[in-house]
Write a protein that binds this DNA or RNA. Structure first.
Lengths: 219, 219
DNA sequence: CACGAATCCGAGGGTAACTCGCATCCTGGG
DNA sequence: CCCAGGATGCGAGTTACCCTCGGATTCGTG
């Protein structure tokens, strides 16, 4: 219950539930069009057809509106992943699972521009960073569950899961931001899947052999 | 020459050069301690022992101060990388090069907390996003140069370079933020290197085989 | 020293986040 | 139906902070 980010109070009647919806819809739109920093809470209230006072009745500050949008997004994605991963058979090919997951995420973000907003334009106060990290932990949990007992002996499941989430996140992000639909996008998706898949068999080769370039003083 | 971010004018005399230094030093400290959003330009000026007017003589706005810090950081890293990569012999083991690069980056960030600030707490106006992307392009350039002619036939060098940068970035970030020095950190570094190294030999296996879990309606 | 350029200064203007007291609407018990 | 109390809505006003501007001060140079 973070008073800096959590809703001030829950809407109880239908009327106020609609108010909150209108505020969130307006915010999503204006944030996306003008960027977070450039949109004012007054604009949001105006576009929502709501007074500024009503807005602050439910959200303690501007960040809280962003967080509410972000949480919805995370919930949607988490639900989708639960659905996808729930039916994985014990002997399924994990690379194929990763492939499905990556495509799911890309699809998801095609329908919901919140990703760009949250990952790209959000201001990062300490509170928002913590909020983002909560989502990350959730995803690492999913991955750990998926990987449990399927990695080479001696591998650190949490570490590999963490890296896998990072790779998938970076790959999906790259795809969404920089690879327009088409062959380029397909190649980027394939590479993301291949890279994440390679984590299933890594055994760090402990390659400490010094490279010729390591000519830093005294080396 | 972005008037929203570039310095308003360059300091010509020693006095003003020192003023700019003091402003940047104060800003780095307060940004890091209190977070970007919570620090005011008046605080920065006060801690720098400079009037608010002098601050705005050189920086058009708060973001510009952050950008100046970020650019210095990028310059330092780029110089270090140029130094490291300049001497790579044509037949060097690229995995070892990646290992050296990753360790260099981790070291670099141990001495310079700017990473956390720029990557983690900076607000992202469209201008700042563009600025960050310039740094990314620079790094992808480094990687492309390194990879040129060394990938399996048919591989898209730019794409692989882009993914490699993303993996290294994510790995280094993870190490800095979440892996305290010790065996945990070493393992995370090794995994980062191994993952990036795996990119040297990827041939996307085109694994379209459907997983058992793909039970979405109509699939 | 004189003069122009560079630098410094800080009160104050403007904008946008956020508050507060009151009006209006809804709900449930009598 | 009526009323009391809670829920909701409102928007002018307060506040905080970014940034400007015009004038004072210092520096470099002939």
């Amino acid at each position: 219950m973070n008073p800096r980010l959590d809703p001030r109070k829950a809407p109880r009647q239908d009327r106020s539930r609609r108010t909150v919806e209108r505020i969130l819809a307006a915010a999503a739109r204006i944030f996306d069009e003008d960027g977070y920093a450039a949109t004012t809470t007054n604009e949001i209230a105006a576009m929502a057809g709501v007074s500024i006072g009503s807005l602050y009745q439910y959200f303690p500050n501007k960040d809280a509106i962003l967080v509410a949008l972000g949480r919805r997004h995370v919930e949607t994605v988490a639900a989708g992943l639960t659905d996808l991963l729930g039916g994985v058979e014990p002997d399924a090919d994990l690379r194929a699972v990763v492939d499905v997951v990556v495509r799911f995420l890309v699809d998801q973000h095609a329908h919901d521009d919140l990703h760009r907003l949250v990952a790209h334009e959000a201001p990062r106060t300490p509170e928002l960073v913590a909020e983002l990290d909560r989502a990350r932990v959730l995803l690492v949990g999913f991955a750990s569950e998926l990987l449990a007992g399927r990695l080479p002996a001696g591998a650190d499941t949490e570490l590999v899961a963490s890296m896998m989430v990072a790779v998938v996140d970076a790959g999906v992000h790259d795809v969404i931001i920089r690879r327009p639909a088409g062959p380029a996008r397909d190649a980027a998706i394939a590479l993301t899947v291949a890279t994440a898949g390679s984590l299933l068999t890594v055994t760090p080769p402990d390659c400490r052999a010094r490279v010729g370039a390591a000519r830093r003083s005294g080396e």
